[in-house]
């Protein structure tokens, strides 16, 4: 494709709009995190600090368990770091799709927001033919980050009983992220990627059942990516 025929670069506002499904997925989970943090004896400020500084869902829940059980600081920190090691793969995979000429001048800021869901949404957009732009990435990441931090604060302030009277609403909100991942999977599905997807799914199940959920995720991603090495 020549430069003239390329679609225009998506803007910050379009990135922000694209973050909407992630925002809807993050708010209930961040809210649950805020509630869990106050139940574990942490203040609203401390819950806010964890979401603002760590910004990684599952490992924040683990942080609550480790810190409230009195685990040594370095053990807790390295456990959380190991849990998020998979994020190392996201940047290169995204930039490969973005192309060789994609700018990374402001990556120090927007790449902080490269969570599982932001990565999935960005990759899906590029796979559907959208051009890469740092402004769009920043909008996408900022919407998701704001939802995560604000949801945490709302949950910590509301306290433990906020959703207890609404089990159906709570269940529906809890299904947002599985539904988002399934929809993203459908959006990038192609016959060429089927073996990769099948291997990743099967190894995730096996790793989760045999070792732990965190190991299942890391092993599933590595096995799926390794399946991509097989020439067809």
């Amino acid at each position: 494709m020549t430069e003239e025929t390329l679609p225009t670069k998506p803007t910050f506002a379009q990135g922000l709009a694209a973050s909407l499904p992630i925002v809807m997925g993050y708010l209930p989970i961040a809210f649950s995190f805020g509630v869990a943090a106050t139940r574990a004896g942490f203040s609203a400020t401390e819950a806010f600090a964890l979401s603002l500084i760590i910004y990684a869902g599952a490992s924040q829940f683990l942080a609550l368990a480790l810190l409230s059980s009195g685990a040594p600081v370095l053990v807790a920190a390295f456990t959380l770091i190991a849990m998020n090691l998979r994020h190392v793969l996201y940047g290169p995979a995204l930039m490969r799709e973005a192309g060789d000429r994609a700018s990374t001048r402001h990556a120090w800021a927007w790449a902080w927001g490269l969570t599982d869901e932001v990565f999935g949404q960005a990759l899906g957009a590029l796979a559907r033919g959208q051009r890469f732009s740092e402004a769009w990435m920043f909008g996408l990441g900022l919407g998701a980050y704001a939802a995560w931090v604000l949801g945490t604060v709302a949950g910590a302030v509301a306290g433990g009983s906020a959703l207890e009277g609404w089990p159906a609403l709570s269940a529906g909100l809890g299904f947002m992220l599985p539904a988002l991942f399934l929809a993203l999977l459908l959006s990038i599905l192609s016959r060429r990627q089927l073996p990769v997807i099948a291997v990743a799914g099967l190894v995730t199940v096996a790793g989760t059942l045999a070792i732990s959920a965190t190991s299942g995720i890391l092993l599933g991603m590595l096995a799926g990516a390794a399946a991509g090495l097989v020439r067809r």
Binding site: A93, F119, G124, V196, A200, T204, I217, G220, L229
Partner: peptide, 20 residues
């Protein structure tokens, strides 16, 4: 090739981990 398969593998993994 490894990196180009990482995206679909990651999304498949995250869906399975979320639904499991």
């Amino acid at each position: 090739r490894f990196l180009s398969a990482t995206g679909p593998a990651a999304i498949a993994t995250l869906f399975v981990a979320a639904i499991l």
